[in-house]
Amino acid sequence: MIVGDLKPIEEIEASIRDCPRVLVLGCRGCVTVCNTGGEKEVSVLASQLRIASQARREQREVREETIERQCDFEYIEALLPQISDVDAVVSLACGAGVQHVAEVAAGLQRPIQVVPGVNTTFLGAALEQGVWGERCQGCGNCVLEITGGICPIARCSKSLLNGPCGGSSEGKCEIDPEVDCAWQLIYDRLSVLGKLENMTRVLPTRDWSTSRDGGPRTRVIEELRK
């Protein structure tokens, strides 16, 4: 899933300073699962914004909505009446959701600010209750079959293809004693799988053009296009 952190309230406040009518918009996708931008978080943020404006004796109306997915025009458009009626939308979706809502809002008669309430951080997985870890960087050319199911691009601090570097110590990465060394994990996994030869051959330079380095990526399935 896509994981994110809620922005500090002061930052959100600053981005909607002169907006008397605000919609806090949640998403039932990834951000609900990682407890960042679902219905519950929408309600908490909306109350905080109300309290903050009361404390400043400002008139402000803060509405709350949560839709199925902000990364689909269909669901956003169903909410058009509520969006067209406010001065600002604080989106608690990932960066993709915020941009989609902003695009819809840009087509409306009045200028409506769409601002992010979340710092989108990574593609990850739940490690335990309340803990998520980065697992993938969407490089567009997956090597997990070689590395025993552990991603060197996302999980090695230097994205090394031929690790571990000289900083690997007691299973931890040189950057932080709390961070696992991905290449120690890969070594241990490949040992268990009897596939250590995957680590002894030199993996050649990569073609990063499948990644963000090749420019923004688009996926098209012709049969599905109307």
Partner: peptide, 21 residues
């Protein structure tokens, strides 16, 4: 460079072998 003291120790010589290759 080679670091004989980094981990996993058992892989360090193999890594040198990769550099040689």
């Amino acid at each position: 460079a080679a670091n004989p003291f980094a981990d996993p120790f058992a892989f360090r010589v193999a890594r040198l072998g990769k550099k040689i290759n």
